[in-house]
Amino acid sequence: MSYSVTDPSLRQKWGAGILVITYALITLLPLVWIVATGFKSPADSIAYPPKIVFQPSLEGYVNLFTTQTRASEETLKALGEPTTWYDKIVRAKNMMIAGPSRFPERFFNSVIIGFGSTFFAIVLGTAAAYAFSRFRVPLKDDLLFFILSTRMMPPIAVAIPIFLMFRHLGLSDTHAGMILLYTAVNLSLSVWLINGFIDEIPIEYEEAALIDGYTRFQAFYKVVLPQAATGIASTAIFCLIFAWNEYAFAVLLTSGNAQTAPPFIPTIIGVGGQDWPAVAAGATLFLLPVMIFTILLRKHLLRGITFGAVRK
């Protein structure tokens, strides 16, 4: 093994490791608590001292997916024995299931709006980034800075005229309106990041293709796109995560039809005060996909986090 003077000593490695791992465990605690609370009964969730060992229960998830009404003993008797496991959980507290909750709808809205806006942001962003990278676009630097500067605006500040505009155009509380809005917000990210990725592909590849008789379009999608694919994919994940997490526009511009999950989850209320297991169950289902994505794709995400400002 080669030895270098710049290699940290074993003792330094141990010290550094202990510090980082301690911080990581502290940071993880609230997230573990969210997942755990989702599987607690309401009584366990507000027990003092906070329960670390508890009897797992699916009551939170049942409450999340159903609406329930209180029923008298006669009504419950008339209904007969509960037929399903979730019926059993609800009946045990003298309630009956009145119907499904709005959570699946809101979750599905998040999926449609997230993927829809990501798709458009990537298509438009890739085209613009390619043009910025390869052609002489007049006022290129100014345009790029303008695109970046649209991100400095507080969302609430733009929300006022967008609110008015959407009302005029009939786009308030529609999926199309939210997709359009998130596409515009994500464009700055996608243009900047993809521009960086395309800049790194040697221009000689395309020149060779052009000399071989390819048209610009062919050179673009047969030479450049495959080379930039990984970068574009990681940009797409960033756009998706942004749209998935966005709250300010969603809470101001949607109320029912197109409402996404982030404004919905905090409004989940139980019979007496906030139903924390149900909130935690909703949060778990909503946050877990992002956590898994992050862990699986960690190698590719670093650059997106730093907005392409920091090159590898």
Binding site: A16, V20, I21, T27, I265, I305
Partner: peptide, 26 residues
Amino acid sequence: SINKKFKGNDLWTTIIVLPMMLSPAV
């Protein structure tokens, strides 16, 4: 500390990064 390249620093870095990827409202 992470730059001291102790064993497994990659995994722990990812765990530390988790909170910033999540929905601030939720």
